[in-house]
Design a protein around this nucleic acid. Structure first.
Lengths: 339, 339
DNA sequence: TGAATTAGGGTAAGCGCTTAACCTTCATTT
DNA sequence: AAATGAAGGTTAAGCGCTTACCCTAATTCA
């Protein structure tokens, strides 16, 4: 059997309280006793049970990370960032991929609560707003990540999606494109990206009047291709010369399909993505994209979460970070007009 | 405060033992009592504390997954597969990315032990063999994933890496290539892939005599490119017409660099990867690769782990699954000879 | 020198569950 | 009708920690 605090105490000839005190370095202990106890712990290879300590201290040192899918490179990167930040605080992370299925989300949530995790990170609206509201009213420490819910009084860390959409669009306009398409996924944040797109167009004096150049779909490579087919098979006048996709996967779908249409990128068509994932570098031509400061976001989120864990009624905060344009090789000047 | 089993018992007018029994549906309880208790639990929104139950039952329902890096798409996919399989068993997963740093691995390991996880999955030799041996002798349930250590009497689930290397090479030979290069990473499994490569060459009556056509490096895009430069800048006679990379990331590095050399793929150069990750589909041209049955591997690993958790001295088993060749567009017939 | 601190450590009561052992009823068996 | 046994619960002892509180002896101060 694994040694317990009793074994250590007996071996060291002290009480378990003393052992506990040297373990947590609190209380008054003489150097001599401390050393002896430490030696015994070492010798017995004592590993204090966090499940026992969690029972009394009410801290498990575990936080739950709810995301749509860890196999999605964006979320994998997010997870990694959280892991690193958690480690600095001496805690670890339980990954929960929900596939955006409310039932799965609810089951996971319940599991996490029963495990008494110290807090929750909820990325991209994983789980219904109703569910989140319930957690909030149960005072579960929690921070929304990468997609805020304005109506909820909760912590959140996200980027300015509107700004991101605006940046991407402005950039395409600056390249001379006048006929733009937009491919959105069905996440709440993406709606803001679309808004940014629209307002940048307006600011550029361009009206968006072709409804076929706006497609909403969920984020898979295949859906990106399908949408691309729809946009690109329009007549030359209506077909966009540049497409803004609300995430990299969709953008790459467009890239792939464009080839089928015999379009050269960026000569005939510019494509820009969002999230600046590993994929953007991998694909060919490499993808221009709007980048999120994922690591910094995770850092702040973890910090907010920690504050709320430490002191129950900590004031909620909403942090908004700025996205940045990363130019690679999938965007270029608009083709000469009138061709 | 969260309601406890005492609250439920009092409300339902029974003892906590009774509540515990309906909770775990064991022991003898009348339908009437069961219903009443269930009602009360519902009404109070009772969430039994798994930390308390773990303290007595010695089951936390958590397993640790040690991997090099969750941000690496291959391991992200592995993690997802484990997650799904774990969920079926009602447990969840703590992710530990170690970056192959033995210290990090050791710290994580220790954390997991203190958390009293039910078991460990150790993917790709994460942590030193010595560390693993120690776990084993401490009788921690554990299964090695994707890279066995033959000398250790432990469970393991992996693919036949040798076979994978053989398959890839045989395929390139069948396309008429006679001058092959190989790019290996520094994982133990990859050594077997190299062996498979070598023996397939031999079986094909080809001798591998140019040491510059074998490069070992760690798995990053950048390293793939660097290695590609070295191989491709050789004179036409020595330069390989096909390159086998021991993982997709390296392969894609080659793909990218080949373009800088003005080589068209697969016309001038064939490239094949390993792992068949999402990346293989994303890149252009899409990458032929050797695929691992990741989901099935995770299923079996989880099952082995579970068996060992259930009964202490369960016999160890080593499972070996077969990789498969997936042909895409990065491989083609060897260029006409003598050019 | 005697009283008041203080340093160093022990006692014991939980934390919220599980489970072996035990105690009633009440229906069956002979 | 007495003995037997099953059905349905209850009691209480842990699981391995934390921590408020208490005690003793050594130190300090007037």
């Amino acid at each position: 059997m694994k040694p317990t605090i009793y074994d250590v105490a007996k071996e060291a000839g002290v009480s378990i309280a003393t052992v506990s005190k040297v373990l947590n370095s609190n209380g008054r202990i003489s150097d001599k006793t401390r050393r002896k106890v430490n030696q015994v712990m070492e010798r017995l290879n004592y590993q204090p049970s966090m499940v026992a300590s969690a029972l009394t201290s009410r801290k498990t040192g575990t936080v739950g990370l709810m995301i749509p899918d860890i196999a999605n490179p964006y979320f994998a990167e997010v997870a990694r960032s959280f892991e690193d930040n958690a480690q600095k605080l001496g805690c670890d992370i339980i990954i929960c991929s929900t596939d955006r299925d409310d039932d799965r989300a609810e089951r996971y949530m319940s599991l996490l609560l029963r495990k008494r995790v110290d807090g929750l990170i909820i990325a991209s609206h994983t789980g219904s707003p109703e569910l989140i509201r319930r957690m909030l009213s149960d005072r579960v420490p929690l921070v929304l990540f990468s997609a805020d819910i304005r109506s909820l009084e909760s912590n959140s860390v996200s980027i300015d999606d509107y700004k991101g959409g605006y940046l991407a669009t402005e950039y395409l306009l600056s390249l001379g494109h006048r006929n733009l398409g937009i491919l959105s996924d069905n996440l709440p944040g993406s709606e803001l990206r679309v808004q940014g797109f629209m307002e940048a167009l307006e600011a550029g004096g361009i009206s968006f009047d072709n409804p076929d150049n706006l497609i909403r779909t969920s984020a898979t490579l295949e859906n990106g291709r399908t949408a691309a087919v729809r946009m690109l098979s329009q007549t030359a006048g209506k077909r966009p010369t540049a497409i803004f996709a609300c995430n990299d996967l969709l953008a790459i779908g467009v890239l792939k399909e464009a080839r089928q249409f015999g379009l050269s990128i960026p000569r005939d068509l510019s494509v820009i993505g969002f999230d600046n994932t590993l994929l953007a570098e991998i694909c060919h031509p490499s993808l221009s994209s709007i980048s999120q400061p994922v690591h910094e976001m995770a850092r702040q989120a973890m910090q907010l979460l920690n504050e709320e864990i430490e002191q129950e009624g900590a004031p909620k905060r909403k942090v908004l970070l700025m996205p940045e344009l990363v130019v690679r090789h999938s965007t270029g000047p608009a083709p000469a007009a009138g061709v």
